[in-house]
Design a protein around this nucleic acid. Structure first.
Length: 314
DNA sequence: CGTTTTTGACCGGCGC
DNA sequence: GCGCCGGTCAAAAACG
């Protein structure tokens, strides 16, 4: 109940390095605030000036962040309109005839598929813009299909994709077009949750796992901490305090298909997520930020994390 | 001992 | 109609 406890609502979001202005690294501010809070009773009035100063700086920073956010949103809208234009010009790509399931699937594999791209985010941002930007067609109606590429350690031979949910493996099969076995998972909340996923190593790059999701979860993520695609077998849901760190801990390894890259780089091979990207392209960063900030699930998780923090401290 | 994973069998859709 | 193929089932094995 002491006021030192509720100040720090940090989500460990690693808001980060070469960011806006180096004058006030966020963590520094936080730690200052925190320590000020801790030493509150001993420091007294002389600290209020400092506090006000910090407050001003934080406010200014906040303002700048808001501006950045709006810029990012604008960029996103621009990109989206470009994409819509592109999809209009190439309608047959995404409207693959529903009769040829197998053909279309195998071709999707080689060709960073538009549907997969679109739905790649659907796992996390399934709501608002989908209705507007994608017209529901026959094959997408029955179950949302999204594809996610995940880079793994070269030594890692398992078919485990960490995505925050618990999965139960119900089958494995070697398919014709890929010597690596394909694993079939059901959400561990089945049958109440109809989601399934298939995980298979990429033919081209065996260190890349291709996870194909079918359907949407009708429940929140049980626990991000131990969601290791079936290996985390605890009945841990409900007990966990939302773990904000995992929001980023899983992020770097999961690579959803990138709309802009696949579209804009015309001559180059844009079919696979590339492993070695020593520096992350700026637009990719912005895109990721945008998808996070516009993602209702992320917001919900954020709210839960914050309230979890507050509850925990109290 | 209960739960999860493994794996061969089975089923249904599709192409020929 | 037949064979191929992907997906699912379910008994057995493995695991904690």
């Amino acid at each position: 109940m002491d006021c030192s406890s509720w100040i720090n609502t940090s989500l460990d979001l690693n808001i980060n390095p070469h960011r806006v202005h180096e004058e006030v690294p966020k963590m520094e501010v936080e730690s200052k605030l925190f320590s000020l809070g801790m030493t509150k009773f001993s420091v007294k009035e002389e600290s209020t000036d400092e506090l006000e100063e910090e407050l001003k700086r934080v406010t200014a920073e906040n303002k700048k962040l808001v501006e950045m956010l709006s810029v990012v949103c604008e960029n996103y809208n621009t990109l989206r309109s470009h994409l819509m234009e592109y999809m209009k010009r190439n309608p047959e790509k995404e409207l693959s005839p529903s009769s040829k399931k197998r053909k279309s699937e195998s071709s999707n594999n080689n060709n960073s598929n538009l549907m997969g791209i679109n739905n790649g985010n659907s796992e996390s941002s399934s709501t608002d813009e989908e209705e507007s930007c994608k017209k529901p067609r026959e094959e997408t109606i029955k179950a949302k299909i999204s594809r996610v590429y995940v880079r793994t350690e070269a030594s890692d031979t398992g078919l485990i994709v960490k995505d925050g949910y618990q999965w139960r493996k119900y089958g494995q099969k070697v398919t014709r077009d890929n010597p690596c076995p394909r694993a079939y998972f059901k959400c561990s909340f089945a049958p109440s949750c109809p989601v399934k996923k298939k995980v298979q190593r990429s033919v081209d790059d065996q260190s890349v796992l291709v996870a194909t999701y079918e359907g949407e979860h009708n429940h929140p993520q049980p626990s991000r901490m131990e969601a290791t695609s079936g290996s985390g077998r605890g009945m841990s849901q409900g007990s966990s305090v939302p773990c904000s760190a995992s929001l980023i801990s899983s992020a770097p390894t999961v690579v959803t298909l990138d709309l802009t890259n696949s579209k804009s780089s015309k001559g180059s091979k844009n079919t696979e997520p590339r492993k070695d990207s020593p520096k992350v392209p700026q637009n990719l960063v912005e895109q990721m930020a945008t998808s996070l900030t516009t993602d209702p699930n992320f917001r919900a998780a954020l709210v839960a994390a914050i309230s979890g923090r507050l509850m925990h401290k109290n």
